[in-house]
Computed example of a mutant assay.
Amino acid sequence: MDLRIEPGDITTIHVDAVVNAANSRLLGGGGVDGAIQRRGGGEILAECRRLRETTLPEGLPAGQAVATTAGKLPARWVIHTVGPVHAKKEDRSDTLASCYRESLRVAHEIGARTVAFPAISAGIYGWSMDDAARIAVTTAASMADEVGGVVDEVVFVPFGDAATAAFEAALAEVNAGR
Rank of each mutant, 00 (worst) to 15 (best):
T68W: 09
R134K: 11
E146S: 06
P158I: 05
K72N: 15
I120D: 02
P74Q: 06
A166T: 09
R39K: 15
A97Q: 10
V19N: 03
K89C: 13
R113C: 02
L171C: 07
A136H: 04
L51H: 10
W127G: 08
G177W: 07
A122L: 06
G34Y: 11
A172R: 12
A172W: 12
A97W: 05
V85H: 13
D33V: 09
V157K: 02
P84I: 04
A162T: 14
H86Q: 09
P7M: 03
A17G: 01
R134G: 08
R39S: 15
P84D: 04
V106I: 12
V32L: 05
H86A: 11
D94G: 06
M143P: 10
G59T: 02
K72A: 15
H108N: 14
S98P: 09
E168C: 07
A70R: 08
G42A: 13
A169W: 01
S93N: 13
S98Y: 11
L3P: 01
D9N: 00
G149K: 01
I10H: 05
N20A: 09
G31V: 02
K89A: 15
A122F: 10
G126W: 09
D2V: 15
T139E: 12
R105C: 05
V147I: 13
D131Q: 12
A133F: 07
M143H: 10
K88A: 15
T164P: 03
D152H: 13
V18H: 03
G126M: 11
I36K: 12
I120V: 09
A46D: 14
R92L: 05
Y125D: 10
A141S: 15
A140D: 13
S121F: 10
S24Q: 14
R25C: 14
E47L: 07
T69L: 11
G83I: 02
G42L: 05
G41P: 03
P158V: 05
L60H: 08
R39E: 14
I13V: 15
A140S: 14
G40H: 03
A87W: 12
K88M: 13
C99L: 09
M143S: 01
A119P: 08
L56C: 13
I110S: 01
G111N: 04
A119Y: 08
F156Q: 08
A119N: 12
R4D: 15
G30H: 07
T68L: 01
V151R: 00
A170G: 01
K88Q: 15
G63C: 03
G34D: 09
I79N: 08
S98W: 11
G149A: 07
C48Y: 06
K88H: 14
T12V: 14
A136Q: 03
V106M: 08
H108G: 09
T95M: 09
D131A: 10
